[in-house]
Design a protein around this nucleic acid. Structure first.
Lengths: 142, 142
DNA sequence: CGCATATATGCGCATGTTGGCATTTGATAA
DNA sequence: TTATCAAATGCCAACATGCGCATATATGCG
């Protein structure tokens, strides 16, 4: 049940552009994603994505699913309506400057690397901070 | 048109409980209200309500209508969907602690004082700050 | 004009938030 | 056990925010 205080916490959690991008990705792709996938999709630092995802979780928007080393985050569904309305709204945000669109392109490339629908590799990005942690990803890539 | 940046501004503007209460009042009552009516409904200080209402306006949620000394604030409609989704969601927030409900009771009493659907008096409240500015409101009260 | 009144705003202070970096935690595999 | 790696977190500095108060705009009225 969402009361006024938690509603304002939910809105606050969406007031950050990085967090909004995360939610948009999850809304559009209708699947949960692990942190490393989000890091690559957003081209942001790992600790940053981790923090933002935690904020979204404690606000009650996301829920997490641990699978070995990976932790998948997905949208909480249907908390009596507010969340669903928000998801509907987030899907409607226009994106002339291609912010969400760029994220979407990167996430689609990243999702190709899944095996059996799950993430099997770590980070791939190098651009936004050189946060490479797997220097030889077991990826056939083509 | 609402892009990602203005969307996050909209969410941010709703992250404050006072502002959420204002939007809830406007969503539920489907009418624009002047600042002094909101002040009485929320039982908040005038300068506070004025500030919050301005923030909502610059975020793109509210629009204002000047009528002589009074300025009415109402919900912007249908900016391609995000706002309407939000209004739908805000209407669904549960209120077990009677925060919104108390506002609603006060606003209903206050709206009774309108003449021809417009506000004709100033502030009535005295409780939350003694911000009385009209010491003899032309109100028959019963 | 001068006064009353509805609304807005500049300032100060306490508090909260963000991103950066280093490091830690926790799980897998050798 | 040790190495590896996905994810989380503690600390810091910069910046933003919210509220209180006093005061300023701006409109209406006599």
């Amino acid at each position: 049940m969402i009361d006024p205080t938690s509603a304002s916490a939910i809105f606050k959690s969406l007031s950050d552009l990085t967090r909004l991008r995360i939610v948009r990705l999850l809304v559009v792709n209708q699947t949960e994603m692990c942190v490393c996938e989000l890091v690559d999709a957003l081209n942001e630092k790992q600790y940053n994505v981790s923090k933002q995802v935690k904020i979204l979780e404690s606000a009650g928007i996301l829920e997490s699913n641990k699978e070995g080393r990976w932790i998948y985050y997905g949208l909480k569904q249907n908390k009596k309506g507010l969340l669903d309305s928000i998801y509907t709204g987030v899907a409607m945000i226009e994106d002339k400057a291609d912010l969400f669109t760029s994220d979407q392109k990167r996430v689609e490339a990243r999702m190709q690397l899944r095996e059996d629908g799950r993430c099997k590799i770590g980070l791939v990005q190098t651009e936004n901070g050189g946060t490479v942690s797997s220097d030889s990803p077991r990826v056939s890539h083509g």
